[in-house]
Each structure stands twice: as C-alpha cells, then as structure tokens.
Design a protein around this nucleic acid. Structure first.
Length: 465
DNA sequence: ATGTTC
C-alpha cells in the first residue's frame, strides 16, 4: 500500500479512481491488525462512480467495506452497495436525558436495571414485545418513528430529535420480501444481541459548556442510551438484495476486487428497489428505537414518577442517503459512521440549528460514551461524517477463547456497573478488552474537527442481549 | 449484526 501522511491524523492511500482518505493515528496505520481493513477501503476506490472513500479512526474489518467507512458515489454514474451499509440497516443510537442526578438514582440503580430488562425483550431471537399485522408493518416501513408516536409509543416532540425525523423515503414495502416481513413481524420493540445494549449513564465531564447547555446536558445528570437496529428485518433485506444483485447483475459486478463489494447502479431498477427496501428497514429501526426508548422511559417513570425524561437525539450509523455537496447529488454510504452536520445546516431541526447536530458515540460495554457536536469542517472534509464507536479489535471467537463469563462480570462489578444480560456468550464477546479505546477515537475526530467533544458519560447500569 | 453455518 502506498500511504502518505497528509496531516497528523490524516493519511491518504493510493487508490484506483480516487485515493482513500483515512482519519486515524500513525499507530493504527502501522498496526498489522488493521491492514485488511485499510485494504478494504482501498478496494472501494475501484468501484464505479466513486467520489470519495474515507475511513474513520474506529475502522475495522467488515463485509466488503470496512466498518468505520464512508463510501461516496455520484448518484448518476455511481452505485449503491449493501456491503457499504451493513447487514444491520440503520443500526444506531439514541440518547435520552433526564432531570435526575446520579445521587438520586444510586439507591435504586439495581431496581432500575431490572425494570428496563423486564420492559424490553433482549437476546438472540427476542420477540413478542408487541403484536403487529403485516398491514401494520407496511405502515412502519413507510412512516418509521412517526408510526410509533401516532400509536402511543412516545410523544410528537420526540420526532424532530431523530435524524430525518425517523422517516426516510422512498420506502415502498412492495420492495421487501415476504420472508423479511415474516422475520420482522414479532421483533418490533426488541433489542437483539451482539453489541446492542441499553445503558444507564452519568454525565461525568463537560468539555463545551455552551453547547452542553444548548443540548440540556449537565454534570452528574443521568442519561439513558439505546443502541440497536432493524433486527432480522434489515438483515433479511440485505441478504435478499445481495442475492438479487448476484443473480441479475453478474456482468456489472465482474471486475470487483472483492465479491463482497457487490452493488447495483443507483439508477438501475435494482439499485432503486434496494434503496427503497433499505429505507423500509431504516424506518423499522427508527420505530424500534422509538418504541424501546418509550418503554425505557415508562419503566424509569414508574420508579421516579416526578422525573423528566426527554430525547436528546437519535442517529443512524449504518445507512446510505442521497445528499448534495457542491451542487452534486451523491449517494453517501455510512457504515459505522455518524452524520455530523455543522451549525445552520438546513437539515437540522431549529432547536439545534445554532450549535450543530448532536453526535452520539457509544463506547463498548463498561467504557465511556460521548456526546459531540457536528461541524462545518466535517461537511467540508468528510461529507458530513464522523466516527461511530470504539471499534472492535478482538474478534468474537478470540474473545470467547481468552475470557470467561465470570471474569467479564467481575470486571464490570468492580467498576460498580450493574449488569443484566440474557446470554453469557454475548457478554464475553462484548467484553471491554475486545474494543479499541473510545477516548482515543473521539480524541482524533475532535482534533481533526470532524465533530467536537461536548460531554463524556460513564456507565452505571447495562442491559444486554 | 443474524431464527449466530445459505
């Protein structure tokens, strides 16, 4: 690989149609562990209509495209690729703020974790939180979080605090297979497994008092974050369209450096159908986080009836969207990357217009999480993108080999974190030592200016699959 | 991430 250092935390790697740009430190660039992930972002530069191939400091190996990657294509000559989005379409995170302080909830912490665990089905194959018909699921596909609010899962004021108000279009459920519908029916309002979690957190440190105030964040405040996606519904849609593209677009895809980069021209009917189906899954995920967030809010209010609980923001970090930069219509794939819009961006709701978009970066289980704010610089340098999380360094299998359930549980207990987890395996796979240090990731995006630190939150309690 | 190996 032909790598050039452009700035302290910016590297360029010689690509085919464009050069790949990687925002990270020298250590990661040199680390053999990240070599495959760097090769993956270089592979993306071979794709038709590529405008930019970027990687964030939380880059790691993924299906075709690296996680922590941004693939930008011309909407006219370019492509849309399921691997650039990920199997968990619209995996994302929402952060709810409360009027409570750590001191107030401390005596009830265990009870609160238990109440949340009881309110939200978790784990592999979790189901049965709500019963919806196929007809209703079609509405969820089209209306997303708006459907949830209209049906009693939350309040109207939640919607402007969700990226794209929790409703993307075009989203035609006719483009979704019946198999995806079957899987999606009884998984609404369930958390799932893997790195998904619900976490009770405490605001430990404020970096930017002015923006923190605009966001309603104060030191010692209790916050709750929900990290999940579109469950089996999105997974099936990704699987279906990868198969369709293999069957129907073999000739178009014959020259790819990696078969997993399979794609469809964005303007081709298959590209348009995948885009529409992907938006259905994205809307399902927005509804899912809205419903889970509301269930968590209700569980908290049962224990603390006079508390206030409100949504700060909800972001998607596995998605492709049509966005315009320099009067050019582009298809921006963010796979393990968060949108980062600066002040006055017209896509922002008025309540955040003066300061910029809240950017939510969850850490791994047992480590810190961050609230940052979007920047104009990100709009100029990274097509409005920043990092999404800590970034895995140790594979799931390796984690299971080297750690035990008791070990991980003890480690969390020693930090004073209350944990409830359905599966022992999940807890080990998600152990803190399997992830890169989130503080380092956040430091780099802050230094480069892709988003600015506002607050650091630490975990108090965690519910996992 | 995932009815955790289509």
């Amino acid at each position: 690989m032909d790598i050039k250092r452009i700035d302290k935390y910016i590297f360029s790697i010689k690509g085919k149609n464009v050069d790949a740009i990687v925002f990270t430190d020298q250590e990661t660039i040199n680390d053999p562990e990240f070599k495959e992930a760097l090769q993956q972002i270089v592979n993306v530069t071979h794709m038709p209509g590529i405008v930019a191939a970027l990687a964030m400091p939380d880059i790691h190996w993924g299906y075709g495209f690296p996680i922590g990657g941004v693939g930008v294509f011309d909407a006219k000559d370019g492509v849309i690729s399921p691997g650039g989005i990920g199997f968990d379409i619209n995996c994302g995170v929402r952060l709810m703020l409360t009027s409570l302080t750590f001191e107030e909830i401390k005596p009830q912490l265990r009870r609160l974790v238990e109440a949340i665990y009881d309110a939200v089905p978790v784990g592999v194959g979790a189901s049965g939180a709500v019963k919806v018909s196929a007809k209703t699921l079609r509405k969820v596909c089209i209306e997303g979080a708006h459907w949830a609010v209209e049906n009693g899962y939350g309040f109207k004021e939640d919607l402007e605090r969700i990226e794209d108000t929790g409703k993307l279009s075009p989203a035609n459920p006719d483009h979704v297979s019946s198999k995806a519908f079957e899987r999606g029916l009884d998984e609404l309002s369930t958390l799932g497994a893997g790195n998904h979690f619900i976490e009770i957190q405490k605001v430990e440190r404020i970096f930017d008092p002015k923006v923190a105030e605009a966001f309603g964040i104060f030191e010692g405040q209790v916050a709750i974050s929900v990290h999940c996606g579109s469950r089996g519904f999105g997974h099936q849609i990704a699987t279906d369209y990868i198969q369709i593209m293999r069957d129907k677009l073999a000739h178009h895809n014959k020259d790819l450096p990696d078969k997993q980069l399979i794609n469809a021209p964005f303007e081709h009917p298959i590209g348009q159908q995948y885009f529409s189906a992907m938006n259905c899954a994205a809307n399902y995920a927005f509804a899912n986080r809205q419903m889970i967030g509301h269930a968590v809010r209700m569980a908290l209010l049962k224990i603390f009836p006079t508390a206030q609980v409100w949504l700060l923001y909800d972001v998607a970090h596995n998605i492709a969207k049509v966005e315009v930069y320099n009067n050019r219509k582009l298809i921006v794939h963010r796979k393990g990357a968060t949108r980062s819009l600066g002040p006055k961006n017209p896509l922002l709701p008025s309540l955040y217009s003066d300061v910029g978009q809240p950017v939510l970066i969850p850490g791994s289980m047992g480590s810190a999480s961050y609230v940052l704010v979007g920047t104009k610089k990100a709009e100029e340098m990274s097509y409005g993108s920043t990092a999404h999380g800590a970034g895995r360094t140790l594979g799931r299998r390796a984690a299971l080999r080297s750690l035990s359930y008791e070990q991980v549980l003890n480690e969390l207990k020693q930090k004073g974190i209350e944990v409830m987890s359905k599966g022992k395996k999940t807890l080990v796979e998600e152990a803190p030592e399997t992830y890169k240090d989130v503080d380092r990731v956040v430091e780099i995006v802050d230094q480069v200016g892709l988003s600015r630190k506002v607050a650091r939150l630490v975990p108090l309690g965690v519910v996992k699959g």
